[in-house]
């Protein structure tokens, strides 16, 4: 560097830096501590006679448990469906310029979010005590059709109503946050093109709101999967109740709970993977390049290529970067 001629091209590139990386002795100490603790826990579990591995194995294959899994999955899927559809409707109502719609949505959310889901489950199951008959007809006038409440709302339906209507109240707030996160310029641009309010919501705002809506919805779904265990109070046999019924007879509480928990963990793990792919889908256009899938990640790792961080937050704003 003894010449000051700025314009001259330097021959070749400078050698790549080979420096000694910073050492992290603390990390190794941490690994050691955790390894010892894990070994102690493993030993305590393996040698505990109360944990009967045969019972765990039997429970995992028990037909009642398997049936319970299906009920849990059905309840989760259907009540989340009710929750998402209801939530979108309620959110749009709440943000509507129509005061009747927005007040109705507000009252709904106030009631269904403000009372325990357990109470709502029991309520829907005992609605026959309040109105023994439900009918369709002219208000305060003649009835065309009526049915016994308990026949009309069997236990499974009561469970769905309890979980789904409650979930809709929570989803409404999540969707509302998503809609409000979309820049107002988007709505203006759509309106300026002559798009109706409905088309603007459906084609422009909601697809962008999805990016904000999906992560908490994944949370809600995983939460719902476990909340379904509350339907035990109205004697609907899903995964947890199936397990409960078994240990109530055999007193093998811990092994049965371990088996049941294994299934819950398995199901939530699958949901987590699903959520990852849905998020990736809606990241379209927001990230310049989509983050790699877990499989792509593994492949890169084996090929010894650097793996980029999971959430590459290159959400580019409107300012014009020169990227082409």
């Amino acid at each position: 560097m003894n010449e000051t001629d700025q314009g001259s091209v330097k021959p070749g590139r400078p050698e790549a830096i080979k420096a000694v990386p910073v050492r992290h002795p603390g990390r190794w100490a941490g690994v050691a501590v955790i390894a010892v603790l894990a070994a102690m826990l493993g030993h305590a579990i393996a040698t505990n006679p109360a944990i009967n591995w045969t019972v765990i194995g039997d429970t995992l294959t028990n037909p009642t448990i398997i049936h319970g899994i299906w009920v849990t999955l059905e309840l989760t899927a259907l009540s989340m469906l009710m929750g998402v559809v209801g939530g979108v409707l309620l959110a749009i109502m709440r943000l509507s310029a129509n005061p009747v719609l927005s007040a109705t949505a507000w009252v709904y959310i106030w009631i269904f979010r403000g009372t325990p889901v357990l109470v709502q489950l029991v309520f829907w199951n005992s609605i026959g005590a309040l109105w023994p008959k439900l009918s369709i007809g002219i208000p305060f006038g003649p009835e065309f059709w009526s049915e016994n409440s308990n026949t009309l709302i069997p236990v499974f339906t009561a469970a769905l109503l309890g979980l789904g209507l409650n979930e809709a109240a929570y989803m409404a707030e999540i969707v509302r946050a998503g809609i409000q996160s979309v820049d107002e310029g988007q709505t203006e641009a759509a309106h300026a093109l002559g798009m109706s309010r409905a088309a603007t919501m459906r084609r422009i705002v909601l697809p962008q709101a999805m990016r904000v809506i999906i992560p908490p919805t994944g949370n809600e779904t995983i939460s719902m999967l476990k909340t379904t265990s509350l339907v035990q109070v109205i004697a609907l046999v899903e995964l947890f109740t199936a397990g409960h019924d078994i240990y109530a007879r055999t007193f093998q509480t811990i092994p049965v709970l371990i088996a049941v928990s294994m299934y819950y963990l398995l199901m939530t793990s699958i949901l987590t993977v699903g959520q990852y792919y849905i998020e990736r889908h809606y990241a379209r256009g927001a990230n310049r390049t989509l983050p790699p899938t877990p499989i792509e990640r593994l492949a890169r790792l084996f090929r010894g290529k650097p793996v980029p961080p999971a959430k590459s937050d290159v959400v580019t704003g409107a300012e014009g970067g020169g990227h082409v």
Binding site: D183, G185, A189, A192, P207, Q208, Y282, R284, A286, A318
Partner: peptide, 13 residues
């Protein structure tokens, strides 16, 4: 009536 905005407001998705 066409309109062009300062911040483009293209639909990013």
């Amino acid at each position: 009536i066409g309109m062009v905005f300062q911040r483009f407001n293209l639909f990013p998705h």
